[in-house]
Amino acid sequence: MPDNFELNRIAQLYASYERAINQREFEAWVDLFSSEPYYRITARENFEKNLPLSTLVLSSKGMMKDRAYGITQTIFHDPYHQRNITGLPFVSSVEDSASGKGRLVQCEANFSAFRTKLDKLSEVFCVGRYFDEIVEEDGALKFAKRVCVIDSEMIPNAIIYPI
C-alpha cells in the first residue's frame, strides 16, 4: 500500500485535476497527463458490457490538445460553469510499471459534476467513478490513464468540458 507521503501526492494530483477543469484551464489539464495518456468518458452501460464505444476518447497528447482547442474554439455551446467534486482515492494496487520507469498506481474515486448555466439554477450534471493509472514522470505524478464511467443514464444535452 502507498505510504502517507504517496497518498498525499495522489490527493494533490486529484486536486490539481479538479482545479484545472473547474477553472477551465485546459492546458493545465493536458499537462496532468503522462506523455502517453489515455482519457475516456463512457457510459456505465458500455463499461459493464465491455463495449468499446466512448462518449469521448483521447489516446494521445495531441488528441488532448485538440480537445482543449475544440472546447475553446470550435464547439458552439452555452456558457456554463462546471464544478467537479472528487472523492478520496481508493488505491487498489501499487506496482513497478512495465516500462521499469518507477511505479504504477491504480486507484479509483467517485466524482460528481455540477453544472451552472447563466441565469439558471445549479444542477447535477453527471455522477460516476474514475478509474485511474498514475505514473511518475520528471518527478511529478501524472495520469497515464483516466477512465470516467458515468452512472447518469442521460447526459443533459452536451458534454463540452472534461469530466
Binding site: T55, M63, I75, F76, A158
Partner: peptide, 27 residues
C-alpha cells in the same frame, strides 16, 4: 474497428460536430 471508435469522437453528446447540434436545438 479502431478507426470507427476514434471517429465516434465527432458524434454523440460530446462530439466535435454533434454537441453543438444539441445545443442549438435547446436554444
Amino acid at each position: 474497428h479502431a478507426r470507427r471508435l476514434k471517429q465516434a469522437n465527432l458524434f454523440g453528446p460530446s462530439g466535435y460536430v454533434s454537441a453543438d447540434d444539441g445545443e442549438v436545438l435547446e436554444f
